[in-house]
Simulated assay, not measured.
Amino acid sequence: MPAAHLIRVPALADAPYAYAATVTPAARLIHTAGACPLDPTGATVAPGDFAGQAEQVMTNLAAALAAAGARLTDVVKTTVYVASTDRADLVTVWDVVRDRFGDHDPPSTLLGVAVLGYPDQLVEVEAVAAVREGAEC
């Protein structure tokens, strides 16, 4: 049984994510730093390519979660940052993020921001996950 329960709210507009999530009391919370589009050497991948950077970010997020004993399906909240003022760029990134989560649709915030921390960085995703104490990943 998962440690989190995603809540859909029929009274609110249909959205490609749950509006809320609850976590069981016996869960261990995992808070990630923002996953960045960096390769193992620290170089920014796919400069200028929103989708390419989003793919790398999600790969890195999955690796960070795995190191903490969690999976993408354990995520209860994400914040997705996109260095752009163009909604089309935000949608491009969102499509990659949603695809990587599959049927799991945790609450999420999608933001366009002026700049991110690394040279040529366009995308960053931070997450909160919950796993049952003693659960194996």
Rank of each mutant, 00 (worst) to 15 (best):
T92I: 01
A4Y: 04
L6M: 06
H31L: 13
A13T: 02
M58N: 05
P16K: 00
G117W: 02
R98S: 03
R100I: 09
R87C: 06
G69N: 07
V76N: 03
A70K: 07
R98W: 06
A129N: 06
D14S: 04
T22W: 09
V123Q: 01
F101P: 09
A127S: 11
A127R: 03
M58D: 13
V75I: 07
A13L: 06
L65G: 12
D103R: 14
L61H: 13
E136A: 04
Y118H: 03
T44C: 13
A26K: 12
A62M: 07
A129M: 08
D120L: 04
L72D: 10
E55V: 15
P16L: 04
A67Q: 14
V45E: 03
V113Q: 01
K77P: 00
P25H: 08
G117S: 11
M1Y: 02
Y19P: 00
W94Q: 11
A51R: 15
A27G: 05
L90I: 00
L72F: 12
L110Y: 09
A21N: 09
A4G: 14
G42E: 08
G69Y: 15
V115I: 04
R87I: 13
L12C: 04
A13P: 00
G134T: 11
G42D: 13
Q56I: 08
T92D: 07
T78A: 01
A67K: 10
